[in-house]
C-alpha cells in the first residue's frame, strides 16, 4: 500500500476510532439499553412480585398478549420514524378499521370484513402519504388531522354504538383463539415483527427508508426516490394499523371507535424506547418489539404491585423518560 490516509490521520481521535475499535471494546451500549432495561425491570419484578404470581405462565402470556396490538402498530411506526416522519393517526385508524370490519363481517361475511379493514388502511395511508410526499405537508400535521377524521368517521357511521361480531371463524382467526397451544395474537405479533425486521434490515426498500431518514438529499442523489419512499412508509403504517384494528375486533368480538384510542402514543414510546432514532436514519424492529414488551411489563408489574391507574400512569411516564434519557446519544 503506497499511501494510506489511515496511519496519517491517527492523530485525529475521532477518525481513528473506528479502525481501532475492537468488537467488544467499544460496544455502543446505548443502542442496547432497551434489552438491558427489559432484563433489569423483569428481574426486579420477579424478585419483588414473585409471590403475587408474576412468574406464572399465565401472567407472562398476559404480558405478551397485552403487548401484541401495540407492537404490531409499532412495527409500522418504526418505518415511519426511521424515515424521519411521524404518524399520529395509527390509533384512530385501528378504531375505524375495527368498526368497518365488524359492519362488513355481519353484513357480508369474513372475506368482506377483511377487505373492509384493509381498505381503511389503504385509503387512509394513501391520503396521508399523498399529502406528505406530494404536497410536502409535515406528517405531524397531516396525521394529527387524520387522527380526528378517522375517529369522527368511525363514530359517525356507527352512531357511536358498538358493532358486535358474531362470526366465530373471524373471532377465532383474528386474535380471539389459539393456534395450537399458542395464542393467536402472539402468532400475529411474531409474524409482523419477523417480516418487519427483515424488510427494514435486509431489503432495498428498508435501506432506502433509512437513507431517506438519515439524509434525504444524499438519498435523492443516490437515486432513491424519496417522495415515493415517504408515501410508502405512510401507507405501510396505516395498513399495519388497520390490521391491528381487525385484531382488536376479533379479540373483543366487536368493533368500536374507541379501540386503539391513545395507541399512537404507546406505539411511538415503544419505537423510541426500542432504540429507533427520533430523527430518522436508524431503526430496529426487534428493539421496537422489546419496547412494547417493556411497556406492557411495567403495566403488568404495577398492577400486581397494587398501584391504581393514576399512579401507574405517573410511574410509567417516569420510566419512559428515564429510558429515553439513557438511550440518548451524547
Amino acid at each position: 500500500m503506497s499511501t494510506t490516509m489511515g496511519p496519517d490521520a491517527s492523530t485525529d481521535a475521532s477518525a481513528a476510532a473506528p479502525a481501532s475499535r475492537s468488537p467488544l471494546g467499544r460496544v455502543d451500549w446505548r443502542r442496547y439499553i432497551i434489552y438491558i432495561g427489559f432484563v433489569v425491570v423483569f428481574v426486579a419484578f420477579a424478585v419483588t412480585l414473585g409471590d403475587q404470581g408474576f412468574l406464572s405462565t399465565n401472567n407472562l402470556l398476559n404480558i405478551f398478549r397485552q403487548a401484541a396490538t401495540i407492537s404490531i402498530i409499532a412495527v409500522g411506526v418504526t418505518f415511519v420514524i426511521s424515515c424521519a416522519e411521524i404518524d399520529l393517526s395509527v390509533g384512530s385508524v385501528a378504531g375505524l378499521s375495527s368498526v368497518c370490519t365488524a359492519m362488513a363481517v355481519s353484513q357480508w361475511g369474513v372475506l368482506a370484513g377483511v377487505a373492509a379493514g384493509l381498505g381503511v388502511g389503504l385509503v387512509v395511508g394513501s391520503i396521508n402519504g399523498s399529502l406528505v410526499s406530494l404536497l410536502n405537508i409535515p406528517s405531524f400535521l397531516v396525521t394529527l388531522g387524520m387522527l380526528g377524521i378517522a375517529v369522527g368517521v368511525a363514530q359517525w357511521i356507527t352512531d357511536s354504538a358498538p358493532q358486535p361480531i358474531r362470526n366465530d371463524t373471524y373471532n377465532l382467526v383474528f386474535g380471539g383463539g389459539n393456534f395450537g397451544p399458542v395464542p393467536g395474537l402472539l402468532v400475529w405479533m411474531g409474524l409482523f415483527v419477523a417480516v418487519g425486521a427483515v424488510v427494514l434490515a435486509k431489503t432495498r426498500f428498508g435501506r432506502q427508508v433509512l437513507a431517506t431518514g438519515g439524509n434525504r438529499v444524499a438519498a435523492e442523489f443516490s437515486g432513491v426516490r424519496t417522495r415515493r419512499i415517504k408515501f410508502q412508509v405512510m401507507l405501510v403504517s396505516a395498513v399495519v394499523a388497520s390490521v391491528a384494528g381487525m385484531l382488536y375486533a376479533g379479540r373483543l368480538e366487536s368493533g368500536r371507535f374507541q379501540w386503539g384510542s391513545g395507541d399512537e402514543l404507546s406505539a411511538i414510546a415503544a419505537v423510541i424506547l426500542g432504540g429507533t432514532s427520533l430523527f430518522g436514519g436508524y431503526g430496529t424492529v426487534v428493539g421496537t418489539l422489546f419496547g412494547s414488551l417493556l411497556i406492557s411489563l411495567i403495566n403488568n408489574g404495577l398492577i400486581l404491585a397494587g398501584l391504581d391507574t393514576s399512579q401507574q400512569q405517573v410511574v410509567r411516564g417516569a420510566i419512559i423518560i428515564l429510558a429515553v434519557a439513557l438511550a440518548r446519544r451524547k
Binding site: A211, N215, A218, A219
Partner: peptide, 16 residues
C-alpha cells in the same frame, strides 16, 4: 457531503 451518516461506509457505497 452527501452521505447518510447513520449508515455504514459499505451501505452508503452500495445505496440504491
Amino acid at each position: 457531503f452527501s452521505l447518510v451518516p447513520t449508515l455504514t461506509v459499505a451501505q452508503n457505497i452500495s445505496l440504491g
